[in-house]
Write a protein that binds this DNA or RNA. Structure first.
Lengths: 197, 197
DNA sequence: AAATAAAAATACATATGTGTCATTTTTAGC
DNA sequence: GCTAAAAATGACACATATGTATTTTTATTT
C-alpha cells in the first residue's frame, strides 16, 4: 500500500469518526461512510470490510489522543493534589457535555464485539489511566499530601466511580453537584481536607 | 381491548424479553419478535408500532421485579450491615454473570431514546435503590453499626460504583477480586472493620 | 344458524443495506 | 508521451426490514 493509500485510509477514518459521533455505532452503515467521505462503494470496500474495522481504527486514534491529554496535565510543576484535581476537573467537564455519542458508540461497539483482553482498547485505556492515578497517589503519599494504604486499589476505585458517572451521564443524566460530591469523596478518601470547596 | 387482548399483549412482551436477552436492543427487528411469538406481521403491529414500544414494556416488567427482589432482602430480621452485605453479594453475583445482554439492551435503548426524566425507568430504579440504601445506612448509623455523615451522598456514591462495575463488566470485563475490593471499600467507608473477609 | 364485529394472517409495495465485479480512470515509471 | 499497475467507480444481484391494505378466520350476538 503506497503513501497515497495510507493518506486515504487516514482520511476515511477521520471522516468516519465524525459519522460515529453523530449516530453512534450500530446505526452507521457502510453507505453512510461512503457518502460522508464522498467516495464510491467499491472504493471503501478496498480499505475496510465493515464498520467494525473502521471503528476500531477510530478507537486507536482516540486512544493516542487520550494519552496525550493525560501527559499534558502531568508535566506541570505542581503538587500531586493539584494534578489530581486538574484531572478530575477535566473529567467533570467531559461528563457534563450533554451527549457524548462517541462514548455511546464505544459502548455499543464493545457490546457486540467481545474482543480478547489484549486487543481491548477500552481496557487498555482504563488500565493506563488507573496506573497514572496510582503513581500520582503514591507521589502524594510520599509528599505527605495524601493518606492511602492501597494506592492501586484506590486508583481503580476512582476509575470505577468515573465509569459509573460516565454511563449514568449517558442514560439517566447527572448534575454538576453529583460530580462535585463524588470528587469530594475521592479527595476525602485520600485524607485531603476540603478547604475552598 | 378485551381480556384476551391484554393476555396476548403480555405474552408478546414476555416473548420479546427473551429475544432482547439474546440480541440486545438495536439488532432486534419486528420480524424477530413476530417469529419468536409465532404470530403474523400484521398481528404484532396491532399491538405495538415498533421495537422501542415493546422494549419499554419489557423495562416496566423488569422494574417491577427489581422492586420485589429488593424487598426480599429487607424483610429479614437482620442488622443493617447484614442486609447491605446481602444486597452487595447479590449485586456481585449479577455482575459476574458473563453476558448480561438485557443490561446492554437497556443501555442501547437509552442511548437512542432520550426520555424525559419522569419517564426514565432506569433513573427511577437508580433513585429508588439509592433511597433504600440511604435508609439502610441511616438505620445502621442509629444502631452504631455504621459511621456516616452524609447518608444520601454515600448511598449515591455506592450506586455510582455499582454502575461503574456494571458497565465495566460488559465492556472491559471485571474479576471477582475487583468486586470484592469495591465492596470492602464501601464497608470501610461506613466504618465497618473487616473481620472475616 | 345467519349476521356482524373483532382479531389475525397474508401478500404487497417500498425502502434500505450489502458485497462484488467488470469497467474506467488515475498514477507513476520508463 | 506511452504503458502497465494501482486505484476508484457504479451498476447489479441479493438480502432483509418496514408498514399497510386486503382477505380470511374466529368469536359474538341475535
Amino acid at each position: 500500500m503506497g503513501e497515497k493509500s495510507v493518506q486515504k485510509k487516514k482520511y476515511i477514518v477521520e471522516t468516519a469518526r465524525k459519522v460515529f459521533m453523530e449516530k453512534g455505532f450500530k446505526k452507521v452503515t457502510m453507505k453512510d461512510i461512503v457518502e460522508a467521505c464522498e467516495i464510491s462503494r467499491g472504493g471503501l470496500y478496498l480499505y475496510f470490510e465493515n464498520t467494525s474495522q473502521i471503528f476500531l481504527e477510530v478507537l486507536r486514534l482516540e486512544s493516542q489522543e487520550a494519552d496525550d491529554v493525560f501527559s499534558d496535565s502531568i508535566k506541570e510543576d505542581a503538587t500531586a493534589a493539584d494534578i489530581l484535581l486538574l484531572f478530575l476537573a477535566e473529567q467533570k467537564k467531559e461528563l457534563l457535555r450533554k451527549k457524548d455519542t462517541l462514548t455511546q458508540a464505544t459502548y455499543e461497539f464493545y457490546f457486540e464485539n467481545e474482543l480478547p483482553k489484549r486487543e481491548n482498547i477500552l481496557k487498555k485505556q482504563f488500565d493506563s489511566a488507573a496506573k497514572i492515578i496510582e503513581k500520582l497517589i503514591e507521589i502524594g503519599v510520599e509528599n505527605g499530601e495524601f493518606y492511602c494504604e492501597d494506592c492501586k486499589g484506590t486508583a481503580r476505585n476512582i476509575m470505577f466511580v468515573l465509569e459509573g458517572l460516565k454511563i449514568s451521564a449517558q442514560t439517566i443524566g447527572i448534575t454538576p453537584e453529583a460530580v462535585d460530591r463524588e470528587i469530594l469523596y475521592i479527595l476525602r478518601g485520600l485524607g485531603v481536607e476540603d478547604e475552598e470547596n
